[in-house]
Simulated scan of single mutants.
Amino acid sequence: MSWDGHAGAMLLGELRLPAGAWYPWHEHPVHQLVWAAEGVVAVGIGEAHWVLPPTRALWVPAGVPHRTGAVANAELRGVYADPQRCPVRWAQPRIVAVEPLLRELLEYLTGDPAPEARERAEAVVFDVLEPVDVAPIVVPSPEDPRARDVEAMVLADPADRRGLAELGRAVGASERTLARAFVRDCRMTFGTWRTQVRLRASLPLLAEGLPMTTVAHRVGYATASAFVAAFRRAVGVPPGAYFTTAVTATRATTSPRSIARS
C-alpha cells in the first residue's frame, strides 16, 4: 500500500475472500474501513469480535492489530485513509452504518476517478460516516487448563445446556474451581462468558437472515424473546436492528472529510 503518485487521501481496492479464509493478525500505518460489498466478513481485535454484512463496516484506527476473515464468500473492499489528511479522530474501532449513499461513493472511488472528482467524493464520504452505537461482543480465553477444556466444549456447541458442575465433571474439576478460574482469567462469571459466546455465535446466523427463533435455538436459548433480551442487554440494540441501517448514533463530533484500505 503506497500513496506514491496518488493524489487522494483515500486508497481503495477490491478482493474476493472465500468463506473461512482469514488474514493473520496485522496492523496498518493508516486508518482502515473494513467493508464487504457482498457476503459477510468478520473482524477480531483483541478479545472483541464483529461480524459485518454489506450494511455495516468497521473503522479500524491506524496501528490497531486485527485479523479479518470471511464468514461467507465476500467481495471485500480495501478502504484506507491517510491519518495526516483524514479528519476522523476515532481512537477506538467503531461500527459504521453503510447507507446507500456511502455504498455508492465507495464503489465510485474504487473505480479511481479523476483527481478533482475524487477529492469531492472523499469529502462527502467523511461527511456521511455514521457510527452505530453498539458494544462489541467480547469472549476472553481463560488461562487455567481445565477452564480451557470447558471453553473448547462450549465453543464447539454454544447450545450445550450443561451447567458448570456438569462440565466440570467432564474435565475433572470442581464447579467452584472453574468458577474462580473464569472470574480470574476472563474478568467475568462463567454465565456471562457463555452468554457472550452464544451472542457471538449468533452474529453469522443473523447476518444470513435466519428467523429469530431458529437463531435462538441454535445458540442455546429456549425462546426468541429470551435471546432478544440477552442480546439487547449485552450489545445495546435488539438483534433485529444490529444489521439494519436504522439504528445510528449521533454524528461524529469531528466532521469527516477523507479515507483509505483493509
Rank of each mutant, 00 (worst) to 15 (best):
W3H: 11
G8F: 00
L17P: 02
L17I: 10
V30T: 07
H31L: 04
A37P: 06
A37S: 10
G39N: 03
V41Y: 00
A42P: 04
A42M: 06
G46M: 08
A48I: 05
V51E: 01
R56P: 02
R56L: 08
L58P: 00
P61R: 00
P61N: 03
A62V: 02
R67A: 10
L76E: 01
R77P: 11
G78M: 12
C86Q: 10
R89V: 02
R89M: 05
W90E: 07
V98D: 02
R103T: 06
G111V: 12
A114Q: 07
P115E: 08
E119Y: 08
E130A: 15
V134C: 07
P140R: 01
P145R: 05
R146T: 07
A147H: 01
V150A: 00
L155N: 04
A156V: 08
P158S: 01
R162E: 08
G168Q: 04
R169C: 11
S174M: 08
T177S: 12
F182I: 03
F182K: 03
D185L: 03
R187E: 15
M188W: 03
G191I: 08
T195F: 06
A201I: 05
L210G: 09
P211E: 10
T214E: 15
A216W: 02
A216V: 03
H217R: 15
R232L: 12
R233L: 11
A234L: 07
V247E: 15
T248I: 13
T250C: 12
T253I: 14
T254Q: 13
S262Y: 14
